[in-house]
Design a protein around this nucleic acid. Structure first.
Length: 669
RNA sequence: GCGCGUGUAGCUCAGUCGGAUAGAGCGACCGCCUCCUAAGCGGUAGGCCCCUGGUUCGAAUCCAGGCACGCGCGCCA
């Protein structure tokens, strides 16, 4: 991997700068490392000479030349060369670099990064089937988890279940009022494998039913009230619904290799009175206060810092008409807590700041064998709690779409108001834009496009039942993949064809959800999602399969095991990597080494598309190499050996990159 | 009104801490399977990087002001 080399290079240059110009470490400009447009210019480039030109009153090219002379052969990395314009280009010692990495282990975790990190993602209302919007959330969340673990963090994945909200209440109303079901009926229904589909339709029907007559909304209010009080028949029915649908969601996500450590139920947060405790803390610290008069009389409110204003006026009770706008109600005048309040309590728990805890019990098994726990309101009869405690994290990532930015900002402000600046700092809202439907896809789903004329896309709406269900998408993509597999490998047993198709479909969907930068609305287009060509997950898998095929052929025809290839490298002549003839192979080796740098960048910027783009570019490079550089049939043994090593290195790194995206390559495609 | 996000090729998007000739994919057109899998590869066409000004040796990138589009901003959940 390449990050340690970056460190060495920076150190070498910084040391040269110290010697040449007497720069103190704190006066040192940031040493930016980039990659020249092509390999003939160099392997890495440093632009520090440009930054120093002003302060040193000297032309960049002179500075670059002086640094190049002073920092010759930094730590044996290679040759440093100054350009006529002022770049410092590093030409790596190719064989040395390649031998040091090919066949090496993944990087050891960076020290100090091992702190416990909670990632919350998925969090689908348990009242209907998951749709493509939820898929983006889960794909981003799961990929972030994998990246954090890759960098050595101890990650706990939580999936929040809002089992006491309106959405669940609505489905319960539908079951009772529209379907005339009782708890036992619902229990039978919930056994059906696609119960989530049934509820998807029912939910949309209930919405229409409300719209026909506003008076019917009283059913929702009553149901919601019953849910919050945990009252008998309604709550019992809701439990059947939410339990069944959560299991549907888990099965859907498992198709994409997405698993969790803990399900956190809002019902448990209510029953265990997390909010009462949080309220005490908020009151004690003065973070919330009771409004005596005005529009919000009788409410407990939290002052909000608007990002625009530098300093809030001394106090708000001076009759300022805008003052109320900067107050967020936490407890209503009727004494009930708002959404934000519950979120604050939960966030405090995540950091171990609440002073209360859930009970826990085991939930279902997950395909990988990773244990899944669920929160619980009462201690398990066998008393068997988890071995490691949940919560008490040093950092928290909440994966929630950008529409929740305002609420997430309030959470951070509450932490600041409670005098937990470190936790506020490490309370990260991973925000991303929604998934909408392209106009074509919406039309194909029977949505009249004329309804919202000007818009470039059509928003998914669970309430209206408008959207592409995650399982439907996966089914379609799998079916398409299976046709391809069957055409290419007709002799393969059907089970194997199916398995291969599933692996391909999962990669197609996951890559699609990751490849856009998070600030971009995805206008989901079904034809695009069903494509396996160009910048897609299957393209990455195909390149990997090709690499494995070469390694397989080397075993078959030359009796060359991959381990032998790597061992033989030490004694192999350097020539195949040298000069223009070696450029193609060298470019592949260097690019494949950058995975750690990319993982680092992705986590730092929370821009996971860089991982997708990198993996694609790497696969492209390999395919170029594949067409230009035969391996198995190469007569020159040294060349064959080096090329084989390059293929093995690519295969190892690409497999890791795919794993970071929750994908694998099938045996054949 | 305020806040956040987005604006780059016909379409969908990359473009790293400001750096070398602005790149992919799709679509269009022209080629490549006696050769490790054509889910691939090579080539051609396609650009006012939304506009104006500023900072800088250097701006798609930073700053200011506009314009357009999207999303937020309730004692709702």
């Amino acid at each position: 991997m390449i990050l340690p080399l970056h460190t060495d290079l920076r150190r070498a240059i910084a040391s040269a700068l110290g010697t040449l110009y007497g720069l103190a470490p704190d006066a040192m400009p940031p040493i930016v490392i980039e990659y020249p447009p092509n390999r003939r210019m160099g392997d890495l480039a440093v632009t520090v000479a440009f930054d120093l030109a002003r302060t040193l009153r000297k032309a960049p090219r002179l500075i670059a030349a002086e640094i190049a002379a002073a920092a010759t052969g930094p730590a044996g990395l290679g040759r440093l060369e100054a350009t006529g314009t002022g770049y410092l280009n590093l030409f790596l010692d190719r064989p040395r670099f390649a031998r040091a990495r090919i066949g090496g282990d993944p990087p050891a975790a960076a020290a100090g990064d091992a702190a416990k990190t909670i990632v919350e993602h998925t969090a689908i209302n348990p009242n209907k089937a998951a749709h493509i919007g939820h898929l983006r959330n889960a794909a981003l969340g799961d990929t972030l988890c994998r990246l954090l673990r890759f960098r050595g963090a101890d990650v706990e994945v939580q999936n929040y279940i809002d089992d006491t909200g309106v959405q669940v209440a609505d489905v319960v109303v539908g079951l009772r009022e529209l379907e005339k079901k009782d708890v036992d009926d619902v229990r039978r229904l919930a056994e059906e494998p696609r119960f989530d589909d049934y509820c998807w339709n029912l939910y949309a029907r209930v919405t229409r039913w409300y719209e026909e007559d506003d008076a019917r909304l009283s059913h929702r209010r009553d149901a919601l009230h019953d849910l919050e009080r945990d009252a008998d028949s309604t709550a019992a029915m809701a439990r059947v619904v939410t339990d069944s649908i959560v299991r549907c969601h888990l099965r859907t996500m498992a198709r994409l290799g997405i698993e969790y450590d803990l399900l956190s139920w809002e019902g448990d947060i209510l029953r265990l009175a997390f909010w009462d405790r949080a309220f005490e803390i908020l009151k004690a610290s003065g973070a919330v206060r009771l409004q005596a008069d005005g529009r919000l009389a009788g409410c407990w409110v939290m002052p909000i810092d608007e990002p625009g204003e530098a300093e809030a006026p001394s106090d708000a009770d001076g009759g300022d008409p805008d003052a109320d706008a900067r107050l967020k109600v936490i407890v209503r005048s009727n004494g009930t807590v708002t959404y934000v309040g519950k979120d604050i309590a939960y966030q405090l728990w995540k950091f171990g700041l609440l002073g209360r805890d859930f009970h826990y019990r085991r939930f279902d098994a997950q395909p990988s064998g990773r244990p899944l726990w669920t929160t619980s309101s009462a201690a398990a009869p066998d008393g068997g709690g988890p071995t490691a405690p949940f919560g008490r994290a040093a950092a928290v990532y909440n994966i929630i779409d950008t529409r929740q930015s305002y609420l997430q900002r309030l959470l951070v402000q509450a932490l600041v108001a409670l005098d937990h600046p470190a936790e506020a700092e490490r309370s990260v809202h991973f925000s991303y834009e929604m998934v909408a439907l392209s106009r074509n896809t919406a039309a194909a789903l029977g949505h009249a496009a004329s309804a919202d004329d000007g818009k470039p896309f059509v928003e998914v709406s669970g309430r209206k039942g408008l959207g592409v269900k995650a399982d439907d998408l996966l089914d379609q993509v799998t079916e398409r993949a299976q046709q391809e597999v069957a055409a290419r490998h007709p002799d393969l047993p059907a089970v194997e064809q199916r398995r291969t198709a599933e692996i391909i479909a999962a990669a197609a969907v996951r890559y699609f959800m990751i490849k856009f930068s998070r600030g971009k609305v995805i206008a989901f287009d079904i034809d695009e999602a069903l494509s396996f060509e160009g910048e897609t997950g299957p393209y990455l898998q195909y390149a990997t399969v090709r690499a494995r095929k070469i390694l397989q052929k080397l075993r078959d025809r030359h009796g060359l095991e991959t381990a032998d290839i790597l061992e033989g490298l030490a004694a192999a002549p350097d020539a195949p990597l040298a000069g223009p003839a070696g450029d193609e192979l060298w470019g592949l080796v260097l690019e494949a080494a950058r995975l750690d740098e990319i993982a680092d960048q992705a986590v730092r910027t929370l821009e996971l598309s860089v991982l997708a783009k990198y993996a694609f570019a790497l696969a492209q490079r390999f395919n170029g190499f594949y067409h230009s550089s035969p391996v198995v049939a190469e007569p020159d043994e040294a060349v064959r050996r080096w090329r084989a090593a390059g293929v093995a290195w690519f295969e190892a790194q690409m497999t890791r990159a795919l794993a970071l995206m929750g994908c694998e390559a099938p045996d054949r495609m």
